[in-house]
Amino acid sequence: MKPGRMLYQVLSSLFKKTATLDYPHDKSQKIKGFRGRLKAYPQRCIGCKMCMRDCPSQAIIIKEVGSKQFEAQIDLSKCIYCGQCADVCPKMALEITDEFELAQFDPEKLKIVFHVELKKNT
């Protein structure tokens, strides 16, 4: 038993770079493949609602607004960033980006809304 066993390590920290960052000014490196904000490609969407069916938090709502016309709404405040929707999408219309700084004062800004209109022959 030795009292003050951490003394050496602790004192040497005085001369080391701190492990914490001064966040808004100093940001850590982005991690490749990190699951952040969803990105939608409306022109690829076919309105199959696979994403809506699998979303664990019901963050995606796709409504049929006319014949072969859809309105999709993704609520990022409900999203749990699991990426299941992007995995299940048959047309790769959804993509996960590594953007993670999503805080907003206005909840409306956390919603991604887009319209899909399918061509007659597809």
Partner: peptide
């Protein structure tokens, strides 16, 4: 403070491998 600093090594690896730090999915 020290253990949680060193835990970040693992957290970074988990984030790289799975895409999330906590709920890996």
């Amino acid at each position: 403070m020290y253990t949680w600093r060193d835990r970040e090594i693992i957290m970074d690896i988990l984030a790289t491998l799975t895409g999330n730090r906590v709920n890996y999915g």
